[in-house]
Design a protein around this nucleic acid. Structure first.
Lengths: 176, 176
DNA sequence: CGTCCGCTTGACTCAGATCAAACTTGGTGG
DNA sequence: CCACCAAGTTTGATCTGAGTCAAGCGGACG
């Protein structure tokens, strides 16, 4: 999906930036100047609540795009934070915009990418609307194919919004 | 947002259809032939689980588009059901596609619309990842501005995935 | 006037959050 | 090579928010 777009994006002027763990790539309400293309590391889109809690809107690993939804927006609608050292390609928004407006093929690839994001986000919401851990895990597995490897169960717990302990227990129960 | 696109869409050949309550506008895996523009009534995108439960991916009322994410997909990824009598405008996909590919302005409007859907869906997921009713209601209100009127609390409960009774209690608590 | 539906409230139950303590593992530095 | 540390995992005990069942209320509408 994204891979279709890479060729186009690579043809635009770009600038590489690195970010340390915990550093912000951008802040909510910042004017949108660049689009971010993650080459290494992982960044998260997060939103802060008045009660101090943070909610993760999206995790973006190598090969994914950050803030695709902002190409035609005037300001970012959330924060982007590196959760490990990140290398990112920055593409000036106006260049990407020009490409979009002049190349129908790129525009189509972009629309397909956005559509995939819509589906992803809706699927996540669908999973989160289930009431029990067992159901959420089933739905997650139905979507992704299989349970991930051991080291990443904690972040899976975060993704499906259950406590790690509860998820461990559910997994243990299934191993019976 | 959508209003920007209406003018364009209106210029295409269209066909009006009506659907009764409970009738399907399309089924999952059906080949995508048309895009649906709701004029009257309400339809829902739903997905069925093996355990018989249904999950609502999206509610679409008058003025909104159904299956925008399918313009470049080959098959629908969920079912669409009328939850009350629906009048919809059907636009042949190939016409909309041609418009997208030939009009950069329309393509931009379309991309903006998809971006808005991405944000909506992510916001919904964000709300659903909160653990208590109070938090979900706060987040919902922060997003939409205010508590809806009395007749629609039940569907609000559905949207934030809590039982109606629990929501009523939370609202009552706030009226103290 | 009766029926339907959304709302209200009570009582009970339980899945899962939270706190807590141990155990596995990989990596780091002495 | 080993002590040590940090993360993730495992398991136990306790508590509570919210789901469920149930019974009653009130307005809309044929």
């Amino acid at each position: 999906m994204i891979s279709i777009m890479i060729d186009w994006i690579r043809s635009l002027p770009q600038q590489q930036h690195t970010y340390e763990e915990g550093q912000h790539l951008f802040h909510r309400n910042d004017p949108v100047r660049s689009m971010f293309f993650i080459e290494e590391g992982t960044a998260q889109l997060v939103r802060h609540h008045r009660d101090g809690g943070v909610a993760v809107l999206q995790r973006a690993g190598p090969g994914s795009m950050l803030a695709e939804a902002s190409l035609f927006a005037s300001a970012y609608h959330c924060d982007a934070v590196a959760i490990e050292p990140v290398t990112a390609m920055l593409i000036a928004r106006r260049n990407l915009r020009r490409l979009f407006l002049t190349s129908p093929d790129f525009a189509q690839a972009w629309a397909m990418h956005l559509s995939a994001e819509v589906r992803n986000a809706r699927t996540r919401a669908e999973i989160l609307s289930l009431r029990t851990i067992a159901q959420r895990l089933d739905a997650w597995i139905a979507e992704k194919g299989a349970l991930p490897d051991k080291g990443s169960w904690k972040s899976l717990a975060l993704e499906i919004a259950v406590s790690p302990e509860a998820l461990y227990r559910e997994i243990a129960r299934r191993r019976q």
